[in-house]
Every structure is written in C-alpha cells, then in structure tokens.
Amino acid sequence: MDTAGATRILAVVTPDSGLVGPGGAPVFMAHSQEEQERLALLLARIMGGVPHDLENGVYIVVKHS
C-alpha cells in the first residue's frame, strides 16, 4: 500500500507512558504541561506537521496529506 501521501502520526508527546502503546511513531515524554506544549510545537515545526490534542493529556503531531 502506498502511504507516501497519507495522513500519518509523526510523533506522540505524553506526560504518562501508560497512555501510549507501542506503535510506529516515536514517543516523547514531557514532565510538565508547558514542556509538553513546547515539545509538540518544536516537533511540528521541525517535521512540518500539525499538533493535535487528544484531550486525555496526549498530544500527537500529524502530517496531513
């Protein structure tokens, strides 16, 4: 399957590793809300993705096709 143009998760930023299972995207741990937001922004800018909030404390950075 060609996934080059598909929407995909580039990174996961979480304060709690228990909220994220093993998968294809790298997981970044943050120690505070502030650090988490900053990490999500930096990752988004570096990789050209968009930060999204899953409303359970986890942020994902997504590359939209």
Partner: peptide, 8 residues
C-alpha cells in the same frame, strides 16, 4: 478541526 496547542 482539532487545534492542539492552547496558544494556537
């Protein structure tokens, strides 16, 4: 859409 960061 979903907007992640509070600043955004």
């Amino acid at each position: 859409m979903n907007v992640g960061l509070p600043a955004f």
